[in-house]
């Protein structure tokens, strides 16, 4: 089976993650959608690595993974801070950007 199918799988996962970000109001679930999108990209990178027979794709996925870990830490920290301030983690609540 051609590894290109993994890329297609990655695309589908990416779309699901994007939909989660767009549709869910719970900040944690939306955040998990973001994580899913990152991992979909990782999957594509690894698949490309396999197709090219080079290790560099895996290394890139490795880097993405590291950055994603840092991002999770900061993101969850923000969620905690927001929760402390507002007693809610609904994404619809902080609407101060309203024009």
């Amino acid at each position: 089976m051609d590894p290109i199918n993994f890329v297609i799988l990655a695309s589908i996962l990416f779309a699901i993650g994007a939909a989660a970000v767009l549709l869910r109001r719970n900040a944690i679930i939306a955040f998990m959608g973001v994580e899913l999108m990152l991992n979909a990209a990782n999957l594509a990178l690894v698949a490309f690595s396999r197709m090219h027979g080079e290790i560099d794709g895996q290394i890139m996925a490795f880097f993405v993974l590291t950055v994603a870990a840092a991002e999770v830490v900061v993101g969850l920290g923000i969620i905690i801070a927001v929760f402390r301030a507002r007693q809610t983690i609904s994404l619809d609540e902080p609407a101060e950007l309203k024009g």
Partner: peptide, 24 residues
Amino acid sequence: AAGLGAFLVSIIGRVTLPTADTMP
């Protein structure tokens, strides 16, 4: 989101990528 996924899939379907014999 569906459009995004559909686009990505269709693009990937349209390109031909090399498949290396050697495994990394």
